[in-house]
Design a protein around this nucleic acid. Structure first.
Lengths: 205, 205
DNA sequence: GTCTATACACCGATAGAC
DNA sequence: GTCTATCGGTGTATAGAC
């Protein structure tokens, strides 16, 4: 079967490119000026359009945030798909890799983190479509921890809290630093001891 | 020495009352419509003034947020002053009381929590005066945990992350519920085991 | 001194010509 | 699809009545 994208007209593909350019500019402005620190007029300037022309591509400013929200979860899903215990790898080792990967993903782009995990934009609620991307991600996360030996939902909730707590402190109180990131392995060890995931063998540590 | 407040004129005290009324209305609106969900015109309506009259009491909208920010930390300091081990009370017991008190303080007023602990208002930075209230509170918190047996700064950082992580999840994902609140005692136990604060005697538990 | 009235520059969003 | 013009908002600020 031919890829649907191949059948799209030149005009359609040009329109898609413009749409993408708008979203890219929105990311750029959000990282520079903060998620709510730019206006549609400023965004339009950035892509060489008049402000009302943006409404040919998006119904509202929130609709732009919505695409960004979904993109964030798609990016997380991309890297999360590479987590999980390799054959013979101790589960606690895999746990640490995944935990560090998640924290690195979050702290490497605080703006994206704010959009995905905090409610920093007044009245912005993800669309059903975008929200389902976040739910899918949570299900993947739940499956991963299940594979590593976390079967109790309460333990899952506890790790969620610890993991996002460390991330939040890192971003809020030591941006660009390592203060809370350095505590991650210790946190994983404490948690794994609690839920009964065995320690890594000394030799492999 | 006579209390300075006693020497204030009637006009001054009326002015203070108006000021207080404005801040109270700001809290009310913030809880109803969100921290950034109201305008100065709306606030003025609420207290029966014209919008520009607010500038007789506050230099800007941020100045109102600043007073609210400081009040939040004063309220936290009030209840935190009652935490600490009673004579003969096991440290782990006192730890749980303080941890639950903090979490209850935060979750009981999510708007206040947002203002105090998150950066949800664009470009709002607490004044030096208000900021010092938050620093004083952190120092009290550090002293309390020191009294309970947490001497390492990294352990302090770790508990900060766990505590705010649970609180954040509770507010964001189960507002009004108990889902993460119920995990608090377990988290305290895990943490206390890790730092060597002895378990509560069975009889007192 | 405290108020009303008004102006400014900006915001997200819309109408309608081309 | 893109534009100009405009709408009803916003935070902010000042002039001037009383």
């Amino acid at each position: 079967m031919i890829d649907m994208a191949e059948q799209r007209s030149l005009a359609d593909r040009r329109s898609d490119a413009t749409r993408e350019g708008i979203v890219e500019a929105a990311w750029r402005l959000s990282r520079q000026e903060g998620l709510t620190g730019w206006s549609l007029r400023r965004l339009a300037d950035e892509v060489g359009l008049a402000a009302p022309s943006l409404y040919a591509y998006f119904d509202s400013k929130h609709a732009i945030y919505d695409v960004m929200f979904r993109q964030g979860y798609e990016q997380l899903d991309d890297i999360a798909s590479r987590w999980g215990p390799a054959p013979g790898e101790p589960h606690r080792r895999a746990f640490k890799v995944a935990a560090a990967g998640f924290m690195e993903f979050c702290t490497s782009d605080p703006t994206r983190y704010q959009l995905m995990f905090q409610r920093v934009i007044p009245e912005f609620v993800p669309s059903a479509d975008a929200y389902s991307a976040s739910v899918a991600n949570y299900e993947r996360f739940r499956a991963l921890l299940g594979e590593l030996g976390v079967t109790d939902d309460r333990e899952l909730d506890l790790w969620t809290a610890i993991s996002t707590g460390l991330t939040d402190q890192q971003i809020s109180n030591d941006p660009g630093g390592q203060r809370w990131f350095r505590l991650l392995d210790r946190a994983v060890d404490i948690f794994c001891d609690h839920v009964g995931i065995p320690p890594e063998p000394e030799g492999q540590r």
